[in-house]
Design a protein around this nucleic acid. Structure first.
Lengths: 235, 235
DNA sequence: TGACGGCCTTGATAATTGTCAAGGAGGTAA
DNA sequence: TTACCTCCTTGACAATTATCAAGGCCGTCA
């Protein structure tokens, strides 16, 4: 359907590059076209490229010990895929990337990044900062997923989406289907459906399509026993 | 009590350094002595040092939104603290480090690391790999904590400890109190106690003090519906 | 020595979340 | 059009985990 959707604004490693560095990288990049139901890469493949989505939709997911496919993230136009994987050792993609819609991507090779890093020590430092921050974020997610209940996880996810989208009042748009959202929150679609129903029933949110309106963030947070500051924007 | 305990063998950023690089760092390091109940640093402090524990015990923990103190990790002799935090931006410790026993540490400054990185681009590359791997591990933990139940989390934690300790038959030693273990697994101490009771009752493990014996790893894994390969050593 | 405090355990009970089954809505392809 | 198919929802029920309360054990400290 909407092939014009773009990823929520999110920092990527590409933004650390200066214009000239970016040019060097672009010169060595190449374009890729893939059709729906193909795979960009599969878990275990040698991770030698970072990809940026120009148009389309790519889902990163992995097989769980129980046999289910868990969605880790969905990338739309602008999204940068596998920016960590190419630097890991062994250099293998830890997840599979599935094409959901006809997609065009730009592929940047590991080798060209490596060259850039070697010849620009200050860039390496920035990258180290960047990845360290990602570690910090992941540790936060880790706490979030263990120490708070599903209701709170959902609201915290709302806060996350809200702060990443450009503000338009007290509304935001769910970027994925609810099935995917449930997978990301680590709950079943049924439980998610019931959480939504409860929030709507209590007037804490209203829903119209993928658009969620929150009449009062403070009330919403208080209701699920969270600090309201989670909805504050921090660039 | 046992002040001779050492941390489980775990990769640290210090091991990436060549002997000469290590010497440069050591020359700029300094020693710290702290007594029980003091804090090495608190959440929000400027993160300008990485610490290695020479002797003693340090607990890294953070305050959760519900007001509880969650233990992230316990460091014993050999442990390296805050190897990520110093590279984050803003450069603040994301957790507090509490001294549990009289402790001596070596402090390495952020500035000296930065110099090393700038003058050794290949080292930077290694560090990028190292931190990327950490990202991968955290993503695994993230899955583990959301997709599997408490019982499985406990057994996976056993596997983790087992593979990090030098093997002595089918035994391993719990490095922390059960209260801390429960906190790390994201469950209450009561639930943990009941899980242990069930495992012991079913003859899947035996417990004597902090030492756990597993008669048959394969049976244990099968009982909680996990693949036995989690107990395989992978260096 | 006794008093206190933390950790661990256990029981009873409640809250949370998952599982199974079913049906509606909407999209796609023959 | 019909025949699927997936997503979303709902209900009934089961499993998991938390909460509250209590007691035992084992340290430390006065």
């Amino acid at each position: 359907m909407s092939s014009t959707q773009t990823c929520p604004i999110e920092a990527s490693i590409l933004q650390l590059l200066s214009p000239s560095q970016r040019n060097i990288l672009e010169a060595q990049s190449h374009q890729i076209n893939l059709n729906s139901h193909e795979y960009l890469f599969e878990r275990g493949d040698t991770a030698d490229h970072i990809y940026q989505v120009n148009r389309g939709k790519v889902t990163l997911s992995r097989l769980m010990p129980n046999g289910e496919q868990k969605v880790f993230k969905v990338f739309l136009s602008g999204g940068v895929i596998a920016e960590m994987a190419v630097f890991m050792q062994p250099r293998e993609y830890p997840m599979s990337a599935h094409i959901d819609q006809e997609t065009t991507l730009t592929a940047y090779s590991y080798a060209s990044f490596k060259e850039l890093f070697i010849s620009n020590p200050e860039l390496s430092l920035q990258v180290i900062s960047f990845i360290s921050n990602r570690v910090g974020q992941l540790m936060n997610s880790l706490d979030m997923l263990t120490q708070v209940n599903a209701n709170q996880r959902l609201v915290m996810h709302f806060a996350d989406i809200y702060s990443k989208q450009k503000r338009c009042g007290n509304r935001f748009t769910l970027p994925n289907t609810k099935k995917v959202l449930a997978s990301q929150l680590g709950i079943t679609p049924e439980t998610l459906s019931r959480l939504f129903r409860k929030l709507k029933f209590n007037g804490l949110i209203t829903e119209s399509g993928a658009c969620i309106t929150v009449p009062d963030f403070t009330v919403l947070c208080r209701e699920v026993d969270l600090v309201p500051s989670i909805f504050q924007h921090n660039h």
